[in-house]
Design a binder for these strands. Structure first.
Lengths: 346, 346
DNA sequence: CTGAAAGCGCTTACAG
DNA sequence: CTGAAAGCGCTTACAG
């Protein structure tokens, strides 16, 4: 209930001007030739009484909130949860706070989120968006607000972006399976046309094409219950009994897939080899640890923050957009290694 | 780049006073006897030009941000993710936005979060806190800010709270296992002294006491790698080969436990029966679906928002604190049902 | 019903 | 180096 201290109070107590206090607090003491002695006196007193400037007033006046808006697909997804956490930490080192929201792939909800961010006057945007937001993002870019897309881009939208080279990642994963001697390799992906999914599929397709092997693809509709998704996958496997290996394009598809295989009694890697794009803590713990194409989360977060800070500080928009493509890494674990043949024949 | 419209612009265009526009926009037209015709004219024009009041200015002036601060242990935990989502939705129906942060059980980080919320001038707090925040929360309560603890309370702190009756939940779960004929029943819980963990353990202990059966408890230290946690559990089971059933006090412990059982080759429910407190989507999908004590997430979110809104609007602090204890529900699935005995003997 | 004006708590030229 | 003052964009008594 104690009354909040105002900048006015501390100026009066120290018998200096409000401007002096404000300048010192904003690190502009040197620039304005305020004596070190005075600056220190101000700083000490401010700390002593625990004065905290009212951020609302600062923001209203300065036009800066020091808040970044982060849009993810689903914060419960380990990939987005990790990236969000890393971005939050790195942004904080530079004095920026993060507010984040999940779209759950709903374009309408996503528009609401963007509107909310605008109303909250975020200083910049970090966006992993569903399809259908093209015109909104273009408008945002034109408005000059710092913005960086990540994970996936939007077709026809020119904006800063940090993505992972899914084509190469999946290409290598598929090559790895081929090198293990598997020929009948399936891909399970989602139905959406998000750019990152398209490139991941391309990597798979290219590797097979080079070996003149046919594709075998199941496209999952995500707008259904997990149990249904698992059934769909189980049905797919049973309809393709010759399938020897499978690649999943996301970590949650991999999780569902393992359950589907479990339900139909196909053991990993004995009956079928498994690789998933994007790592997940559970993959490491699985009885046969799952081989994955791991995304460079730390690097992603770092580059995202870097791009945004550059835009935030420099504001040199003239240099055009920056598209950064990071390289993922194949982590070979047990699930994709062909078991030693049980035949003892010479 | 188009210039933002201000309330002044719309007042001038309609040739009315700024006050009129503000009053209409804030739904105080009737109260101030502004004619319906005029009010409608204002509303229409505002919609036409897409005028959005500057929230920073509104907040600075009114002292209200219409933002609630939500503190959870870990937003990647399905329990907190679900509750957060439900709270967010319900709060939004009443015009309140949510910002949330994860503590990861770190008291120091939690203090930072609370400071940040204060600096952002949140109108109210929803808190699932680690131990060690007692004095901070007491101070917050004294400050008169609307606040509600959930999931767990803090010892010695008098504050509004919405919790689940874990004692009854675990008591019933244990009784269920006893009714299935199991006598050697273990409990795996975490080491912390969080109140919700204590009550869950009490429910287990009481049920066993009533049958004069001994407790068998493993306390997990969470500050270690998942793989280590799993090893610890596996070692515990192997040190207790007579163990017939096990209860986990949280959903993530259950997940780790299933992996531990998997690694040591104990099948569920044949070798060991399993029940977990708190549901998880993966439990339903497990090859033997896991019996759980499900928490009433929807009701929790509803009550949390209700308590907070009451405090926010009424402000009748005089009525004292409100402690709401919700009843969880035992969902019996396959993992806790004693398999039919394989002996064919008459 | 309406207009003029103060004020929320800051920052920032501007003049000294 | 410093002080007085305007202004960020609203809300809200207070007079009319």
């Amino acid at each position: 209930m104690k009354k909040r201290i105002l900048i006015h109070d501390i100026a009066k107590h120290l018998d200096v001007s409000i401007a002096t206090v404000s300048l010192v607090l904003n690190g502009r003491a040197k620039e304005k030739r305020i004596s070190d002695v005075l600056a220190e006196k101000v700083l000490n007193y401010v700390k002593e009484v625990g004065y905290k400037p009212n951020q609302l007033a600062k923001s209203l006046r300065s036009g800066k909130t020091h808040v970044l808006g982060l849009v993810v697909e689903d914060i419960a997804n380990p990939f987005f949860a990790s990236v969000a956490r890393l971005i939050e930490r790195k942004a904080l080192e530079h004095g920026y706070h993060i507010i984040y929201c999940s779209t759950n792939r709903d374009p309408a909800k996503t528009k609401d989120i963007l509107t909310m961010f605008e109303e909250r006057h975020v200083d910049g945007y970090v966006l992993a968006l569903p399809e259908g937001l093209e015109s909104e993002v273009s408008a945002l870019v034109r408005s000059g607000k710092p913005l960086v897309l990540f994970d996936r881009v939007l077709s026809g939208v020119s904006a800063n972006a940090v993505v992972v080279d899914g084509a190469t990642g999946m290409y290598e994963a598929t090559q790895h399976l081929l090198a293990q001697g598997y020929k009948s390799i399936a891909l399970i992906t989602i139905q959406h046309g998000q750019t990152q999914m398209i490139t991941r599929r391309q990597g798979y397709a290219q590797a097979l094409r080079e070996h003149t092997l046919p594709e075998m693809v199941d496209e999952i509709v995500l707008q259904q219950e997990p149990a249904q998704i698992i059934s769909q996958m189980a049905a797919f496997f049973q309809a393709h009994p010759h399938c020897e290996a499978v690649l999943f394009t996301t970590n949650y598809l991999g999780l569902y897939g393992l359950e589907a295989l479990n339900q139909i009694g196909w053991s990993v890697p004995k009956r079928i080899a498994v690789v998933s794009f994007d790592d997940n803590a559970l993959f490491r713990l699985y009885s046969s640890p799952i081989t994955v194409v791991a995304q460079p989360l730390e690097a992603m977060a770092e580059e995202i923050v870097k791009v945004l800070l550059t835009a935030l500080q420099g504001g040199k928009q003239t240099n055009g957009m920056m598209l950064l493509q990071l390289t993922p890494k194949l982590l070979i674990r047990q699930s994709s290694i062909r078991p030693a043949s049980p035949t003892r024949a010479k």
